[in-house]
Design a protein around this nucleic acid. Sequence first.
DNA 1: CTGAAAGCGCTTACAG
DNA 2: CTGAAAGCGCTTACAG
Lengths: 334, 334
Amino acid sequence: MKALSIKDIALKANVSITTVSFIINGKAKEKSISEAVIEKVEKIIVESGYKPNQIARSLRTGNSNIIGLIVEDISNSFFAKVARLIEDKAYKHGYKIIYSSTENDVEKAKELINMFKSRKVDAYIISPIKGLEKDIQVLLNDNKPVILFDRNLPDVDTNYVGSNHFSASYQSIKTFIEEGKKNIALVTTDIDVQQINERFEGYRNALLDHKMPYKEALVLKIHFNQDEAATIKQIKHLFDTEEIDAVLFATNYLAISGLKVLKITNKKIGPEFSVIAYDDHEAFELHTPGISTVQQPLEEIAETVIKLILSQLTTKTKLPSQQVIIPAKLILRD
Amino acid sequence: MKALSIKDIALKANVSITTVSFIINGKAKEKSISEAVIEKVEKIIVESGYKPNQIARSLRTGNSNIIGLIVEDISNSFFAKVARLIEDKAYKHGYKIIYSSTENDVEKAKELINMFKSRKVDAYIISPIKGLEKDIQVLLNDNKPVILFDRNLPDVDTNYVGSNHFSASYQSIKTFIEEGKKNIALVTTDIDVQQINERFEGYRNALLDHKMPYKEALVLKIHFNQDEAATIKQIKHLFDTEEIDAVLFATNYLAISGLKVLKITNKKIGPEFSVIAYDDHEAFELHTPGISTVQQPLEEIAETVIKLILSQLTTKTKLPSQQVIIPAKLILRD
DNA sequence: CTGAAAGCGCTTACAG
DNA sequence: CTGAAAGCGCTTACAG
């Protein structure tokens, strides 16, 4: 059973495919098609259940009503939640979202961009990694809207939506210092992306600004994508060998591994040992005691991304790039 | 800067577009194109960075190398994880995945199926809801591979991959009974889908088989999609008004709400009060004490789904429908 | 008020 | 060993 085409509808209605096309695309009045014809054609369309072939439409028009979303890892709850919010909002404006995960692999990320390009997506939302600068520049030269989020790529002049990671991290460390902590550790990842680097700088600067020594031994950089057992081992080693009274975890999955270490070693969080985790997670609120976290306002980030995309999509002229920084909040628990 | 087309390549190479097409599609030898021509054309393709327009290819061939994945909610960690695994495995076989969330809304789900249809996806992976039977039957009549997962639709004869929810739930309750629990509650959702119904039946049957009374007051059906504050209130009410010594939560997000109630009311999990949650979540392992869970083998589910899809995609003839049941495991913690 | 025709970028049956 | 041409299902400039 072959799908109906515009030709079939035209045949049934005894009009040309041009007329059918105008009606489908809401140009009937503009093209002064008679009411009678409009009604007849619309009735046939509804009765037959005809749906235009979007592939053919895309080939002809060069756009697709699809927005490509490229994240680090869709199974990470931060990205999953933002993706879902973006999906909802885009959907309301008639756009669909295609997502894919880069796993911080430059080659895979390039392939994904190429795939999206060859599918003629109308716009790109990308949580980028270093090494993608050229590919993104090509999209921009091609006049495609590109919004970076979560992390910026300083060398590319495009739109960006994200939090102020430096100051959120700085603030966290300042809180520790004000509580009288002396040996504050940082557990972070080794990926060289802006938002991770900023968290590190926030840590270092807060220490130095408060006349505290920066000790390299207290900073643990975990290799991205290694399996969790190895991560747990490294964190355990840090906790075992160094005198520590506070830890900032730079990502939520690292914090989860860290909490597992505490559970295994029976080390308690309390006045002697404080924890702050970056990016909230259900596990943190439930934990006893509750884990303080830096929360990025997901709803606002998603909203801003979509707004920027839509304004670019509806304006023909190239808009100046915008950098929107949405403050993250430090939520202290217990 | 317009994208290159096959015509541009043909022009540069001084051959016909037919020849270029054969080379791109690996049919060069089969069509006995000379080595010299193959080399020349391939060199030009690489140098120019030409990528075939997939839209045009899809229009012509009727397929897209895209698999559509429809889940309840991509921000739910169960679906996010399965989606990511499916994405990885599909990617290795040259297929891309498009996901979307139904939010258990039949209308939205139908629209998504239509969208995928009009994009000519090659196959469908669907976590279905009631009311989609006809739409899915249409896909099957159209000879498209369809794999249902997580929940089955008994009235449609198609492939299905999922866990045995009845027996996992039965087993959980049996464990409670053997521990000597007398008043076992069930907190579940009100959506009428197979896997939720089975969890309920497992609960009820386990009680009856062990000569325990089934009390309606101990079963709380939470409205899907209501906000969490309302859920927490209802669960709190259940715990406050009924004498309960064990609870089975039928989904992980309900369990998380339930654990929040326990935290608020300062009720402890222990010999007097046991909990089992359906579908594992990072929060459960970290919780003090650890929360016992029913775990579905995500990796195996994803693997089986992809295997079924690929076998359907490569065989022209219609294969008999398969129902693959992968046992869930009950993990007791603490 | 409506239609015939070109063209988007491919693939492939057919011809030589 | 290689190419001219039809056709996938649309949209739209042009003509009447």
